[in-house]
């Protein structure tokens, strides 16, 4: 097959996949926003259950990782800033890199590993065991029943987790600042608050909402398109993780570009 044809086919497949994700998102958002006004109930209990497992359950590991990332960021920036005699800027470097970029991204990656893969595996096994067919024949829309509660939980939990990761990352930076760079806890917090703008946190949170949508859409789409057999469930899970990481980084790039060009003038 000529290279142009392969490239063309890959582009068409990629666009078709994005189209499938958009349709899934659209139908889920319809189930969350519009359907409750048409007399169809939103399954609050399932939303809470998902929020607990995808959100609250992620707190311990996310705390640890973002704390470490905070320390690492402080170390890496101190390495260069020390040469310039500007070690006091460590707090600023940590605060900006964590709130604008690292906390949303690390949170997304932790959630992909814990929940994006779980969505694909859960829905994939349901597909293999005819449970999705059973839902349909019981007049229950699988998107309304399975995907919408997951999406709502993720849209609510990702910003919360990201805020928590912001806090833990800065705490990590502060640990380094206080123990090595001559800060007191008070002066570190003051330097942090002085260096970050409200906008930094908000842009991070906006990105985290988008990441939540991407992770849910990819995880559920991969689950719903699982073929027959247990092996396919494994394939869907792997594929969900790889595609989610790629799309989260791509969305991150787009939004960072957008924020850069809309706020730097």
């Amino acid at each position: 097959m000529p290279v142009t044809e392969t490239l063309g086919q890959a582009t068409i497949d990629g666009l078709a996949y994005l189209g499938d994700l958009a349709i899934l998102m659209g139908r889920s958002l319809h189930a969350i926003i519009v359907a409750p006004f048409q007399g169809q109930r939103l399954r609050g209990q399932r939303v809470v259950h998902q929020a607990m497992s995808a959100g609250v359950g992620a707190i311990p590991i996310l705390s640890l990782i973002s704390f470490f990332i905070g320390v690492i960021m402080a170390l890496q920036s101190a390495y260069e800033l020390r040469k310039l005699g500007a070690i006091a800027l460590v707090a600023r470097a940590v605060a900006i890199s964590i709130t604008r970029e690292l906390a949303p991204l690390i949170t997304a990656i932790v959630v992909i590993g814990r929940s994006g893969s779980a969505f694909a595996a859960e829905i994939g096994s349901m597909k293999v065991n005819e449970e999705i067919d059973a839902l349909e024949t019981m007049a229950l829309d699988p998107i309304q029943f399975l995907v919408a509660p997951k999406l709502l939980a993720m849209l609510l939990m990702l910003p919360c987790l990201t805020t928590w990761a912001d806090f833990m990352g800065i705490l990590g930076g502060a640990t380094f600042g206080v123990s090595v760079a001559g800060f007191t806890l008070g002066s570190y917090i003051q330097a942090t608050l002085h260096s970050i703008a409200f906008r930094d946190i908000v842009t991070g949170l906006i990105k985290s909402v988008m990441f939540g949508a991407v992770i849910t859409a990819v995880g559920c789409q991969e689950g719903l398109s699982t073929g027959l057999g247990a092996e396919q469930v494994g394939r869907s899970t792997t594929s969900a993780v790889v595609k989610s990481i790629f799309l989260v980084v791509a969305v991150d790039l787009v939004f960072t570009l957008l924020f850069y060009f809309t706020t730097s003038r």
């Binding site: 349901m126 065991n129 449970e131």
Partner: peptide, 11 residues
């Protein structure tokens, strides 16, 4: 409908 494998929801 009763499916071949039962299709009971495992959760």
């Amino acid at each position: 409908i009763s499916f071949q494998g039962g299709a009971l929801f495992g959760s």
